[in-house]
Each structure stands twice: as structure tokens, then as C-alpha cells.
Design a protein around this nucleic acid. Structure first.
Lengths: 226, 226
DNA sequence: ACGGTAGGTCTACGTTGTAAACTTGTCAAC
DNA sequence: GTTGACAAGTTTACAACGTAGACCTACCGT
């Protein structure tokens, strides 16, 4: 049929490999993503993957790029820079949210993959528009983006295994550890135990995370007002 | 002599094991910290370590605790809560800074190890003092502390290998990748390439990171002022 | 003097990433 | 057509990893 499907069915496609690698890691964690496992999922010998990725690191980089490719960068508008910046950072976060176990892979790829570069450039653009020098925009943008990656990576609840019994056990263990603490010595921690283990709602969690980041940016720009 | 040194010289001490494990990982990266390597450093069979740590994860947890033990929590004062909070978060950051490659191990241990708990409780105390509800203090504190861990973990420059030639190569490669970008499509990124690769000074880097975090806290507390 | 036990050792297994040499299906050029 | 080269998948192999399980052995309380 199409020129690409005219070849032997065995032909592998790096993009498809990255996609199913991402699926495996999302479902069962990064440690479940092994060369052999991915090869098996494509009915192929492990070594076959090395025709398309030089390394396992190279494969992981491709997975990171795959995630970044989903960024849906909003078009520039006439709104104030803060509003647009929040929209850009939100778009970034939305792209990572489906992949809490793998979002960390994007860290080294932002300044390499085109969608990451586009977002980074746009972020710096808005920051300089807001009044930051080029260098400050670079450092502030970097730190903000890192914080958002961490926000996704450490999202409580989504990190644990899919197996419901294992997940329940982990949650129970965590809860037990916290409630075993002396409420006398740690009154606030024990009082907020439930919140610390699992936030009220994921949407609120992300809303607060973004608020903290953009409020930080505005605050730093305004100067160290006491 | 002393009761502890009266035994056979072979006796291992979990604290010493964690300390030298930390040293290995700091010097050569987390992936260089293997059971066999740590055992060899103590002239002992790999399996000997399992008398003191149930798992490798258990060992890594001990390394995380080892780092947190260095937190030098400032005593409460009469200063405003923001000032004190910044001091607490600074103390936390200072404890992690010597260990950029391993600071991530502290993430799961803060709510377990006593020094981590003390810092977390104190942070929540100051946040509620500032006006946050208990639950909000928990979420804001959590996010702030995670951001600071990430700040250390992603500190540019310190992450790479100690081997100077390897490090130089990595830096050169990164610089080359950035300067290969089209200055037309990515004017700000290429203009700030040097800053993105290696910040002006580590102290400024951390000062800005802390500023962003505490400014974010203050901004969120003040409400979404446009 | 003597058994128990804490803390080492030895051996062995399954899993991982990947190097090296091989086979094979496809296509360009004669 | 035949051929030769090249891209892509196979086979085999290895070193390193975490760790299970059986063993030894020096110490200590009785």
C-alpha cells in the first residue's frame, strides 16, 4: 500500500518504539522499561533496538522528546505577559501530567527537542517582556520549568504501582508511619497527615503549584519588598 | 580499648556504611554506588551488607537520612515569619548543596527521619503563623521543599563527572548543541546560552532559587492579585 | 563449659545493558 | 537478470548487578 508499509512487516519505527516505550514506563514504572521488554513488545530481538538507538540513554531521550512533542503551545495574544506566561506554563504542565513516572526524562531534552525549545524561547520572551534581563529570564525560566517538572514527578498518588493491592498497601504504610508520630512533637504534620499523603484534588494540586511558580516570578521581579 | 573497638576489626557500622556510600555517590554518581562497590570499600563480602540493610533501597534511604542529618535548623526568633522561613529553607538547602548527585534521595525521607520531620514541622509552623490553613501549609510546604531539592539536584556544573576531560567534553557538547541553534528562530535562548549552561555564580543561583520560592509563598498568601 | 546468635563468607541464579560477528531482504547499477 | 553493497534483524556471549540460601565462626550470657 503506502510506501512505508510496503516493506517487510518487521520494519521498526523509532517513533513507534518511543511511543510504546513510554506506554510501558507509564504503566509499570521506569524500571520496567528494559531493552528486552521493549523488544519483546515488538516481536524482535533485543539487539534490534540498537539499530535505532545507540544507547539505552538514547532511547530514554527519545521518550522524553515524545512527551515534549505533546506540548500544545498557546498562540501569542494581546493579554498581559503574566497571563500568557501562565498559559504557556500550564500547557507545559498539561503535557507532562499524563506521565508522572516519566516526566523527569524531559529535563535534559527541553533545550534539544524543537517543542521544548519553542516553549523555552516563548517563556524567555514573555519574561523579558515583563522586565527581566536576558540572563535573569534564562535563570528564572529554568528554575520555573524545573519546578513544574518536579510538581508532576512528585504528584502524590499517581506514582505508585497500578496493582491496587500494592498501592493500597503503600498508602496504608505511609499513613501508618505518619500517624505513629507523636502528635505532641509534630502537631501540624500529624494534623495534616491526610493532605500530605494525598492532596484534596489533583486539579487543585496543580493549580496551587502553578500559582506558586508565577507568584514567585512576579515577586522576584517586583524586588525584595519586605 | 573502647567497647565498640574491642571486637574484631571486621565489625561494620551502618552509619559508617551510609557515610562512605554517600561519599562514593557524591564522587562518581549514584550509578557508581553498587552493593559490591561499597562492600569492597569496607573489605567485606557484598552479602555482608545485607546484615545491616534489608535492601538496596534501604541503603539508599540511609544515605538520604545521612544527608538530612546535616540540617542545621535555626532556632526560633522574634523575627517576622517570612524571615524565619527563609532561614529554615536556607538551612535545608545548605545541607543538600554538598550532594547535588544524591540530594534526590532525601525526598522520600523527609517525613521519616527526625531532622526532616523537625524541619517540616517548623516550616508548617511558620506558614500557619503567616496565615495559611493547616492543609494549605502542608501543600505549600511540600511544594516548596520539593522545589529546593530540585534546585540542588539540577544545579548546573556540579552534576557532571569529576574527571575533568569528561566534564569538559560534556560542557563543550552542550555548548555546541546550543550554539548550533538558529539565532533567528531562538534569539533569546542563543543569547543566553552561557547562562543556561552554567550560571553566573552558584551562590547567586541558590539566592535566586530561594527568592523564587519565598516570593511565591508570599504571593500565594496575598491572593491572586492581578 | 556450652549452646545461641549476630555477623561475617561462599556459591549460585536470574536479569540487565551491550559488544561482535553473522545473516538476510532490498535496491542501484551494470 | 546478476551482482554487490548496505540497512536491519539475529545469534551468541559477557561482565556487572541485586540478592537468595546455606554455611561458618567468634563471641556472650548462663
Amino acid at each position: 500500500m503506502s510506501p512505508t508499509s510496503s516493506q517487510t512487516a518487521k520494519r521498526l519505527d523509532p517513533d513507534q518504539l518511543a511511543t510504546s516505550a513510554l506506554a510501558i514506563a507509564d504503566a509499570e514504572g521506569l524500571e520496567a522499561l528494559t531493552i528486552r521488554r521493549l523488544a519483546q513488545a515488538h516481536d524482535v530481538t533485543p539487539m534490534a533496538l540498537y539499530r535505532h538507538f545507540s544507547d539505552k540513554d538514547d532511547l530514554l531521550a527519545a521518550v522524553g522528546d515524545r512527551i515534549l512533542a505533546d506540548i500544545d503551545l498557546p498562540a501569542p495574544t494581546e493579554e498581559p505577559w503574566e497571563t500568557q506566561l501562565r498559559a504557556v506554563l500550564t500547557a507545559f504542565t498539561e503535557a507532562l501530567r499524563p506521565h508522572p513516572k516519566t516526566a523527569g526524562l524531559t529535563l535534559f531534552r527541553i533545550l534539544v527537542s524543537p517543542p521544548g525549545l519553542a516553549m523555552a524561547e516563548r517563556t524567555m520572551e514573555l519574561l523579558t517582556q515583563g522586565g527581566f534581563s536576558t540572563d535573569n529570564a534564562a535563570e528564572v525560566g529554568r528554575q520555573s520549568i524545573c519546578s513544574l517538572i518536579t510538581l508532576v514527578t512528585t504528584e502524590p498518588g499517581a506514582n505508585e504501582d497500578i496493582d491496587p493491592t500494592t498501592r493500597e498497601d503503600a498508602l496504608r504504610a505511609k499513613r501508618a508511619a505518619l500517624s505513629a508520630l507523636s502528635p505532641h512533637r509534630y502537631p501540624l504534620i500529624t494534623a495534616a497527615a491526610d493532605t500530605l499523603i494525598c492532596p484534596t484534588s489533583a486539579d487543585q494540586y496543580y493549580a496551587l503549584g502553578l500559582d506558586l511558580v508565577v507568584a514567585g516570578i512576579r515577586g522576584v521581579l517586583a524586588g525584595p519588598a519586605a
